[in-house]
């Protein structure tokens, strides 16, 4: 019996690998998805190498060069304080990707852990976790984030001040860090429930597969079963969810910054730049267009990739 099970288990990863290369082939054939991927790759390159792409600092003001239209020296013009818009958009790309990646990482970890526990153990654990997930999904995320932000940020700031006075470590004095901690924390908090649902649904369907039942009857510890069979099998739908989630986190970040509860000025963020640009877009449309187009490209590209991955990983569109 034991020998009969082992090969089946061992062949799983190989099958997985085949599945992935098939999926990649299908994805490559999907032109729209590849366009999306190309744009995202480009934005990531900009985010990484941005500082070497532009001769200007994103903070330096030049009041003699305010609101300039795009030109050779300032590719995207300058803003109302004479700062180079291209540099700010590039650094805004950094902000956007940093937020998207960190937030997605945190929420995938929280969501898939809770989803896996719920799906694998079922029963009361499932009921409680799913109830919790439903509660989170029923609170409008914008309200939730703003409530948390307005009520927790001041105490966090005070705590950091106290830590700074106590330790003298300048890390605790860093205002940008406080902003990012709040943004990461709050957006993750509203982003995890979909991951929990996806993973749970997938695990429920895999849990009753013969090879899992067999492994269980052999007394394999739960942890191993989860790690070896359940998680690898849930990755497909999770990847689809992640590509949608990255775009979603980016859009949320800019919405919060727009409302003034996200990243604070003068740190560049597309949402902040849009909110500044909207004030004068009739006179200086480039101030609004640059960040808005960057945000639009990123959000559309991620949804292209999401659709492509969905088609590639669920060829028959299994629902």
């Amino acid at each position: 019996m034991a020998t009969a099970i082992e090969p089946t288990g061992a062949s799983r990863p190989a099958e997985q690998a085949g599945l992935w290369s098939d999926a990649w082939a299908r994805l490559r054939a999907n032109r729209i998805a590849m366009v999306g991927l190309a744009f995202i790759a480009l934005l990531i390159l900009i985010a990484i190498f941005g500082p070497w792409l532009t001769p200007y600092d994103f903070l330096t003001q030049n009041l003699d060069a305010r609101n300039l239209p795009p030109s050779m020296s300032h590719w995207l013009g300058t803003d109302e304080l004479g700062r180079d818009v291209a540099s700010r958009v590039i650094y805004g790309t950094r902000t956007a990707f940093l937020v998207a990646i960190v937030v997605t990482a945190i929420s995938v970890v929280i969501g898939s852990t809770l989803g896996a526990i719920a799906g694998y153990f079922g029963g009361r654990a499932d009921a409680v976790i799913m109830w919790f997930t439903d509660v989170f999904m029923s609170v409008p995320n914008l309200l939730l984030v703003i409530v948390i932000n307005t009520s927790l940020k001041p105490p966090l700031g005070r705590w950091m001040d106290a830590m700074y006075l106590w330790s003298g470590n300048t890390l605790f004095r860093n205002t940008v860090l406080v902003d990012f901690i709040m943004v990461f924390g709050t957006i993750s908090l509203v982003m995890w429930p979909p991951y929990a649902r996806t993973v749970r649904a997938q695990i429920l369907s895999v849990r009753s597969q013969p090879y899992v039942l067999a492994a269980r009857s052999l007394g394999l510890p739960s942890r191993q079963i989860i790690l070896r069979y359940l998680i690898p099998n849930s990755i497909g739908p999770l990847v689809v969810a992640v590509s949608a989630g990255l775009g979603g986190a980016m859009v949320l970040e800019s919405a919060f910054s727009f409302l003034g509860v996200g990243v604070q000025p003068p740190t560049p963020s597309w949402g902040l730049m849009i909110s500044d640009g909207l004030r004068t877009w009739q006179q200086y449309p480039h101030l609004l267009a640059a960040p808005a187009i960057a945000l639009a490209i990123a959000s559309v590209a991620f949804s292209f990739i999401g659709d492509g991955l969905n088609d590639a990983l669920n060829p028959k569109g299994a629902k």
């Binding site: 903070l59 330096t60 003001q61 304080l81 700031g157 300048t170 004095r173 860093n174 205002t175 406080v178 604070q264 000025p265 003068p266």
Partner: peptide, 15 residues
């Protein structure tokens, strides 16, 4: 804030 940063090197200011 920018003047403080450039002239004094102060970075930890929250608006």
């Amino acid at each position: 804030v920018e003047q403080w940063r450039q002239n004094l090197g102060i970075t930890a200011v929250e608006l």
